[in-house]
Design a protein around this nucleic acid. Sequence first.
DNA 1: CTAGATAGATAGGGATCGGTCGCTTTGTCA
DNA 2: TGACAAAGCGACCGATCCCTATCTATCTAG
Lengths: 225, 225
Amino acid sequence: MTVATAAVCHTRAVDEPSAPLAAPRTQASRRKATIDRLVDATIAAVIEVGYHRTSINEICRRAGVSHGGLFRHFATRIDLLVAAYEEVTRRQIEEFASQLHRSVVPEADPSTDPIRWAVQTLSDITSNPLNSVIHELHSAARTDPDLRARIAPALWAFLGRIRAITDDLPFADQFDRRRFRLTLEVCLHVFDSLHSLRFLEYDPAHDDEVIDFAVEIARAIRPPP
Amino acid sequence: MTVATAAVCHTRAVDEPSAPLAAPRTQASRRKATIDRLVDATIAAVIEVGYHRTSINEICRRAGVSHGGLFRHFATRIDLLVAAYEEVTRRQIEEFASQLHRSVVPEADPSTDPIRWAVQTLSDITSNPLNSVIHELHSAARTDPDLRARIAPALWAFLGRIRAITDDLPFADQFDRRRFRLTLEVCLHVFDSLHSLRFLEYDPAHDDEVIDFAVEIARAIRPPP
DNA sequence: CTAGATAGATAGGGATCGGTCGCTTTGTCA
DNA sequence: TGACAAAGCGACCGATCCCTATCTATCTAG
């Protein structure tokens, strides 16, 4: 055990005995921990109060970091919001791939229709609160050329990864490629738009109705002409 | 001719001889003209700079009205933005009904497929810049309970009018009611979401591809089971 | 152990925010 | 025509915005 480790253990034992990793020990870990807290706080703030109310103050308050500390790691507010956007797309891709994977592993319920599973997964992903971060930044980017230029590459990468994942779906070869891709795009647009109106009224029954209808569309479109 | 009218005519003849109605003559028309200018300026500002940059200053500058003049007619910024939202939904409904109507009047090209016409109309309406005002306010309303409470009734009325118009489409009875409504809802969601990503890249060819696919879906769904 | 570098905190600058308050200009009505 | 009301104006308010400059605390390296 190094001296530094011993010192940290001592401090923890006195101040907060059961707190996990109260103080990082190296500059690098201190830096990473602060950046992670700032990005997490930014994501939470955009979800809860929206893009234009996610101010430096709001982020610092949530992250427990001072103004000076924030600007040590991010030169501008937009830099931090772009980092949050990239982190959100990364998490969404991870969740999407992970959830889709569950339908093809041997333990999956064999009675599950893979098309329905995929549609349900698209609905789940777009109804994730993280998705509203993406929507908020897209909405802001429409009228902010700087922000638009910053998130465009991340958005293209995001769409590319979605396509790569969906093109590998086991039932893809039951469609012709054009119809398959368009069907998936339609589903994504429908759920994206449908769930962005949840602020008005959340009707799970209607969600299910739309999911059923999307499955019906996919089946009706499936046979090549 | 009253004295006031004579004065106005005189001023117009000197300053801008051909300008239409440079100065309203009654309190009521002055009031209406100012309110209209403020609402128009608000709509234009939201389209061009977005919801959160549509400040009192920005609106007054565009409308040629002072701060004091604005607050004479709208108690808060949100009041004005709600008025702009209602005006936009009114214009969109008007445009929607008018454009749909053109496909059923005798002068319409008889070779036009009414389903394709309706789908194209949905795409046109959602790609109208006015639609971004609706999107901006929905996005802001998600995290602003006051705004949400104010625009919710207008949104419900808007959706109700869309449904009333589409339920009267001449080919509605070729579908069963549930599939017909869901198909229209799917189209609206798809075009809404698709066009909200135009800030990234505008690809008319892809728009056409999606329109073709929407028509294909409608035809595949049409026959009752 | 110490000198230098990195991380974090605090105060405040310059600009803009939504909104108020007197004031002037314009229209109304007896 | 003159008193009153409505419409319009712009200075000003406190709050908040993003960001910087300066200082202290912590970590690294020789």
